[in-house]
Amino acid sequence: MSINDNILIKIRDMKDSLTPVEKLVADYVLDNLEEIPHLSIKSLAQLTKTSDASVLRFCKTMGYKGYRNFIVSISASIGSMDEEQKDQYTDIQPGDDLHTIISNISRNNMKSIEDTLSVIDKREIERAVQVLRESNRIVFFGVGASGLVGIDAEQKFSRINKMCHTYTDGHSQLTAATLLEKNDVAIFISNSGNTAEILDALEIAKKNGACLIAITKYNKSALAEQANIVLSISTPEVTIRSGAMGSRIAMLTVIDILFAGVASAEYKKVKKYLTKTHDILASKQRK
């Protein structure tokens, strides 16, 4: 169950990883939104040149038990579209003035967080918080911008005295994955879910029995399929660096949610660590 369910965002983000037949249904739905709530499953199958079974498989891929649940969700999402249209992703173009850049970057980042709430599963967050609380050690894996998200996560969890570390290059990731054990948690951060270094480390971590958590775009990636827990994010379909910026902001938000979830559940125990780390840092500030 998503925190703020919006099936249109799910279809948009999932489209590129669907089967060819499912993609036919997805394209038709996105191109004919007003028509969809009035169609039977047979009518939609005929219009997409597929079959009733194919449409039903598409609905289940999107997380719905049946066609009726899917149609109800489509209708609800269409009803909220007017407001959302005012706040769509906007790419950064060469030569944009500073005012436009400030506006578009801010809007894209906010939109990434809002859309992530439409695809991330609350039950998966609850599971992730629980295994993090019970873990002996937490290891974060990420490359490039995703590695920076891991470094931020390490800084946060270290403050509440969790044994954790981040690895951002292929060789160190392989070494770290090799040393993981059954009660350890490995968090793999990758927007695409197909980063080669991440998948190599994941394979080793899986063999060692560690719990695998993926923070990745909402799709059918290799990372999402192999992880024990998947925390999905939604990112903009734009061409310049604003796309990577949006995914980073969404990932950082997921990390904040996990940290706050663990810290809140264990507040009596971690309060002393938060106080100690706050006081030592405050004492070093210039007065």
Rank of each mutant, 00 (worst) to 15 (best):
N32T: 00
N32F: 02
E35Y: 03
S40C: 11
A196S: 08
L47Y: 14
G66W: 03
D152F: 12
K284M: 14
G209P: 05
T253Q: 11
F140E: 04
Q93T: 08
K156Y: 10
D27L: 13
K284Q: 15
A250M: 11
I113L: 14
V29P: 06
L98H: 09
Q93S: 08
R159H: 13
C164M: 10
A76M: 11
T175P: 02
L8T: 04
R137H: 03
Q173T: 02
E22D: 11
L179F: 14
D27N: 15
A263N: 04
E237K: 15
L30V: 09
I78S: 07
T61M: 11
V254T: 12
T168L: 06
A244Y: 09
S192C: 05
L180H: 00
E35H: 04
N161C: 08
R68F: 13
R286I: 14
S172K: 13
C211M: 06
F70D: 02
K269M: 07
L39C: 07
S2E: 13
D16V: 04
A205C: 07
N109Y: 11
S80R: 15
V72Q: 14
R57K: 15
E181H: 15
S192R: 05
I204Q: 00
V29Q: 10
S77H: 08
I189K: 00
V131I: 13
V129Y: 10
V262K: 05
T48C: 13
Y28A: 04
S264Y: 15
P20N: 07
I240F: 13
L180Q: 01
Q88S: 11
V139W: 01
F141Y: 15
L148W: 02
A177C: 01
C164A: 07
L231N: 09
Y218L: 01
R57L: 08
K156A: 09
P94C: 03
S242L: 02
A222I: 01
S118Y: 09
S190G: 05
L202F: 06
D200S: 02
D152W: 00
L231C: 08
A176D: 05
I101D: 04
Q93W: 14
P20M: 07
M163V: 09
I151N: 09
I113M: 14
I74G: 05
N136G: 09
N32C: 00
L24R: 15
M245T: 14
N136P: 03
K217P: 01
